[in-house]
């Protein structure tokens, strides 16, 4: 069970759950939308603790800023480009190993968005961010997950639930 810490008690009194899980990704882009698919499954999983709220984040993390405030933890589920281990689940609690700068000419990365929000919002400065990165090796227009990724969804859910249950 997840413990209440920091602002969690006061937030809980107002009905704000201490842990927020955000599934990122575009469900129209095949495996790139794995975070979106996992959020949907997680929200209906009976093992999900009552202290956890799950939401879809699309591809614009900044839009979720209000929903993150007064949480103890925010767990982001997102796809990561991994040509060698598609389907892998890697948990990042610090982001030095992830690209923090724009990957192209017009892009605000997830890591940049987290940094920006924590730098500009006192209400988010103490929130613990975790990125659960799901390895994918290709993204294309497709509403379904690839068979290889889809087959690993149950194991991914198990791993995410384990991460959610980790005490801060």
């Amino acid at each position: 069970m997840i413990s209440f810490q920091g602002g969690g008690l006061a937030a809980a009194a107002r009905g704000i759950k201490p842990v927020l899980v955000i599934g990122l990704g575009n469900p129209l882009m095949g495996d790139e939308g794995i975070g979106w698919h996992l959020a949907g499954q997680l929200a209906s999983d009976e093992r999900l603790p009552e202290t956890v709220e799950v939401m879809y984040g699309g591809t614009d993390l900044l839009s979720c800023a209000d929903r993150m405030e007064e949480r103890d933890r925010v767990v982001l589920i997102d796809a990561i480009l991994d040509l060698e281990a598609p389907g892998s689940v890697t948990v990042y609690r610090s982001f030095e190993d992830l690209c923090s700068e724009p990957g192209g000419a017009h892009h605000l990365s997830v890591v940049d968005a987290i940094g920006l929000l924590q730098a500009t919002s006192p209400a988010l400065a103490s929130v613990e961010f975790t990125v659960v990165a799901i390895g994918v090796d290709y993204a294309c227009i497709e509403t379904d997950l690839s068979p290889a990724i889809a087959a690993r969804v149950p194991a991914m859910i198990d791993r995410i639930l384990t991460e959610i249950a980790r005490a801060r």
């Binding site: 990122l24 614009d60 796809a79 990561i80 991994d82 992830l98 690209c99 990957g103 990125v131």
Partner: peptide, 26 residues
């Protein structure tokens, strides 16, 4: 200059796909 011009057009090339990348990956 080229990056700034591309950005000035505000092209929507990253919002439908936004994969995280590891440092040093292709």
């Amino acid at each position: 200059k080229l990056e700034m011009i591309a950005r000035a057009y505000d092209p929507c090339i990253s919002c439908s796909v936004h994969l995280i990348q590891k440092r040093g990956s292709a």
